[in-house]
């Protein structure tokens, strides 16, 4: 099959662009290790406390290094469980210093949820039986909204918490 000369030019240009995109993505993914969240560990959705990370006392923000934090969250219809404060009240705001390395770990106790800190790359699916994790550095100070962006039922749009990234 003969192809018009200009069409060849176009195909080389078009397919070349696609290959360029893929190479950039592959370097990010395989060389720098920045895959989309794809954690492989499973968990019993009815017994999430069996997992060390999701024991009641380990929920919420924990400092694990000089500038390193872990945030363990239970996602349920229709709230994020970020643990309790000293007064025994449910935490709904976490504060992270700018530039800190943060590992978010979450799982669902019921249905499928989303986990998106709006305006950041912290965006992952949460599914019952699976643990979702994402490590990131919060680069810009500000008040962010952590919200559920995957339909989870009638109260889906109320499922949210606040993430403050502050200048230390």
């Amino acid at each position: 099959m003969r192809i018009h000369k200009y069409e060849k030019i176009w195909l080389i240009f078009g397919v070349g662009s696609l290959i360029l995109f893929l190479i950039i993505l592959a370097i990010g993914a395989f060389y720098k290790g920045v895959h989309p969240p794809s954690h492989m560990d499973t968990i019993d959705p009815k017994n999430v406390q069996e997992n060390e990370s999701f024991k009641e006392e380990n929920l919420g923000l924990r400092q694990v290094g000089e500038n390193e934090y872990i945030v363990n969250v239970l996602s349920s219809g229709f709230y994020y469980d970020l643990g309790k404060d000293e007064d025994g009240e449910a935490v709904n705001t976490i504060r992270i210093p700018v530039g800190a390395k943060v590992l978010f770990q979450t799982t669902s106790t019921d249905v499928v949820h989303g986990f998106h800190i709006a305006g950041t790359n912290v965006n992952m699916m949460v599914e019952p039986g699976h643990i979702s994790t994402l490590e990131t550095v919060m680069q810009k100070p500000g008040t962010y909204t952590l919200l559920c962006n995957e339909y989870c039922g009638s109260g889906h749009h109320y499922m949210a918490a606040t993430v403050e990234v502050y200048e230390p």
Binding site: R2, H4, K5, Y6, I9, W10, F13, G14, S17
Partner: peptide, 16 residues
């Protein structure tokens, strides 16, 4: 064989 498709080429390159 190769009729003039200059406009086409420019159009698709703009698209690209």
């Amino acid at each position: 064989k190769d009729n003039t498709l200059k406009g086409t080429l420019i159009s698709v390159l703009l698209l690209g």
